[in-house]
């Protein structure tokens, strides 16, 4: 009797603790650090070597970029499944733009524009034409990858090595990611845009009655995410110099994984924060790398990723009393 009382008290205080904002933001970071420690011990320190760390950073870059953009959509309590498809299609078309003009500037402009245009279409479908966001993103996911395949056929877009080397030498990837990330953090945490988005995620009716137009801010969120997709497309080009029909096919899932592992609130709203994507992307890469180094086969790694994902979702989020609402 006493024991159960104690248990319930403990679980209540645990609940209160997990509902605390600081906790939800710190947990993923702590989790990441623990992972790094565990792997470092398991591999006899090889995991924390400079080369290994560099590799992790390089690998996390693309996922981190897309998921940072996706934060804006997640914050409004929506999920976009078409982020990956948008990124790859953008990469294909901007690669083609470069091959046609031989101009890096054109490529960058095309990538940024295209990413945001595709996302704008998605946003307009859901706001002006009132199709549910869930359906919009599912159908966009299929449509965009079909378009991409239709453009590519079986071939790949290859870009000249000299251009890639040049961009790599000037640290294009880090600069692009860095500026986008800083921009996003500022936009998300220090401006009225981020505040409005989070408020829409908390209660969109209330937001509307407080004069925050859902349509307008959804558009902003999607466009920001679109810019993220554009930048990620450029990073993908710089990384492999070629885009094929199956390039980055699991990007979207990786992003959702990263966001949740990074501690993003799955219901969006006020507990959202912009660096969840980065923390999560690094966590995913650390997991992949670490498990591979420990000697786990690559197929098992996916399963472990899934299980950790579920555990983290359950511990970090408040469980609703009923089943999640249809829109979720």
């Amino acid at each position: 009797m006493k024991c159960s009382e104690w248990c319930s008290k403990a679980s209540a205080s645990f609940r209160r603790f997990t509902e605390d904002r600081l906790f939800s933001r710190l947990l993923p970071v702590v989790f990441l650090l623990v992972l790094v420690c565990v792997f470092s011990i398991a591999t006899g320190g090889r995991f924390t070597s400079a080369q290994s760390m560099k590799v992790i950073v390089q690998q996390a870059l693309i996922v981190a970029t897309v998921s940072t953009g996706a934060c804006f959509i997640f914050a409004t309590n929506n999920v976009n499944l078409a982020m990956g498809a948008t990124t790859v299609l953008t990469a294909v078309l901007s690669g083609m733009a470069y091959n046609a003009t031989n101009s890096v500037v054109v490529m960058v402009v095309v990538a940024l524009l295209l990413g945001s245009v595709i996302m704008t279409v998605s946003a307009l479908l859901s706001t002006l034409l009132r199709v549910r966001v869930m359906f919009v993103t599912i159908v966009m996911m299929s449509l965009l990858s079909a378009v991409q395949e239709s453009i590519l056929g079986g071939s790949t877009i290859s870009l000249p090595y000299e251009m890639i080397t040049m961009l790599t030498d000037m640290n294009f990837s880090y600069i692009a990611f860095g500026s986008f990330f800083i921009g996003c953090v500022i936009l998300f945490h220090f401006t009225d845009v981020g505040r409005s988005l989070r408020f829409i995620g908390t209660n969109s009716t209330c937001a509307e009655q407080t004069g925050i137009s859902r349509n307008k801010y959804m558009l902003i969120a999607f466009i920001t995410a679109g810019v993220g997709c554009g930048i990620a497309a450029l990073l993908a080009i710089v990384r492999a110099a070629s885009i094929g029909s199956k390039t980055l096919s699991s990007l979207n899932m990786d992003c959702m994984l990263a966001l949740v592992l990074g501690g993003m609130s799955i219901f969006g709203g006020s507990k959202s924060f912009a660096f969840a994507g980065v923390v999560g992307a690094v966590t995913v890469c650390v997991l992949n790398q670490g498990l591979l180094m420990v000697g786990v086969s690559s197929s098992i790694i996916q399963g472990i990723r899934g299980i950790l994902f579920l555990i983290l979702v359950c511990t970090a989020q408040t469980r609703p009393k009923g089943l999640p609402a249809p829109e979720g």
Binding site: R195, R198, F199, T202, N203, T205, C206, A207, Q209, F267, G269, S270, K271
Partner: peptide
């Protein structure tokens, strides 16, 4: 309609 319940007083 008038409050974001899970948001803070500040927000």
């Amino acid at each position: 309609e008038s409050l974001g319940l899970s948001a803070t007083i500040f927000e």
